[in-house]
Amino acid sequence: FVDKVENTDFETEADWNEALKEYERFTTTYYEEYKDKLTEEDLVEIGRLQGRFMKASMTRGAKFIEKNFNDAIQQASGLLDGLFEENEDEE
């Protein structure tokens, strides 16, 4: 699962939300089901995988912020152009 998250560009917010739901199933439902059978090594591996997932989540979040920032800059550029554009009726 973590490999999939690290190597997937989630196209839509719905796709990403589905991945988050799956992560939640792993960390709650499945964990609760097997927690009494886990060894110390298993717990270390679970922690490592959770860390990788968090890193992938932060990377995705940074890309999302960057895209939204770039979109906002482009819109602001257009807004400024519109504000300072001379109206043909005024000429």
Rank of each mutant, 00 (worst) to 15 (best):
F1C: 04
V2R: 05
E6L: 12
N7V: 11
T8D: 06
D9F: 11
T12Y: 09
T12P: 12
A14G: 01
A19I: 01
L20D: 14
K21M: 03
K21A: 14
E22S: 13
E22I: 09
E22C: 08
R25Y: 13
F26E: 09
F26S: 05
T28R: 00
T29F: 10
Y31F: 15
Y34F: 01
K35A: 08
K35W: 01
T39K: 04
E41D: 15
E41G: 14
D42H: 09
E45T: 07
E45V: 12
E45N: 09
G47Q: 13
G47Y: 15
L49R: 11
L49H: 07
L49A: 09
Q50P: 02
G51T: 05
F53D: 05
M54L: 13
K55S: 14
K55T: 14
A56S: 05
A62D: 15
I65C: 10
E66H: 10
N68S: 12
N70I: 02
D71R: 10
Q75G: 05
Q75W: 07
G78H: 09
G78I: 00
L79R: 08
L80M: 00
D81V: 06
D81H: 03
G82P: 01
E85G: 05
N87W: 04
D89W: 01
D89A: 00
E90I: 07
